[in-house]
């Protein structure tokens, strides 16, 4: 993971033409299924950093969310984490409004902590491959550097249920 960040930072330093965007405030909803096969929304913590060069952008995003399930003295906590690199193309719709379409590739990992009564056990999956496509509307009011955007991503991985898995997001960022 840190490997990617260092790589991005070094690379961005070499490109003087590019602009860096930081997205610290993201509200994201992932959809998946609960034990009873009902669709449930998982609100996720997300952070991303992007490098934009003309109409192209390269964005690194990290997402985490927890869910849990219990019955009697069983308590199972699931932690999901993914890191995705998105390659996007920006279409200018209006002076202050862009449509960004992207394709992404990354890895995800799930960590399970099972507690039954007084005993507890931790397991994790391997890093598994994940791909995605995304569409996003981005508003840059008055060229202040401040950005607001909203969009949908569709993520795909062999073991996702459902697969593909949609995600809705709204976010605020700053372009340097």
């Amino acid at each position: 993971m840190s490997k990617f960040l260092i790589f991005l930072i070094l690379f961005s330093a070499r490109i003087s033409l590019g602009a860096i965007t930081l997205w610290p405030a993201v509200y994201s909803l992932r959809t998946d299924r609960d034990e009873f096969q009902n669709t449930q929304f998982q609100s996720a913590q997300q952070f991303s950093l992007a490098l934009q060069i003309q109409s192209w952008s390269l964005e690194f995003g990290r997402t985490e969310f927890d869910s849990s399930s219990e019955e009697g003295n069983i308590f199972i906590k699931e932690k999901y984490e993914d890191s995705i690199l998105w390659l996007g193309y920006h279409f200018k719709l209006l002076e202050e409004l862009d449509l960004v379409t992207s394709g992404g590739i990354g890895t995800y990992q799930e960590k399970i902590t099972t507690t039954v009564g007084l005993i507890s056990n931790r397991s994790e999956s391997e890093q598994e491959m994940l791909t995605g496509i995304a569409g996003e509307l981005r508003w840059k009011p008055f060229d202040l550097g401040f950005l607001l955007s909203s969009g949908i991503r569709v993520l795909m991985a062999e073991n996702f249920d459902p697969n593909p898995q949609p995600e809705f997001f709204v976010r605020a960022g700053w372009m340097f």
């Binding site: 034990e35 069983i74 199972i76 099972t114 999956s125 391997e126």
Partner: peptide, 23 residues
């Protein structure tokens, strides 16, 4: 309907249940 279980597979190939129903 059939009940549906969900697992993660750890590096030893063991399927770990991710919720109470699966366990």
């Amino acid at each position: 309907p059939h009940a549906v279980a969900k697992f993660i597979q750890n590096s030893e190939g063991v399927f770990i249940p991710t919720n109470s129903l699966s366990l």
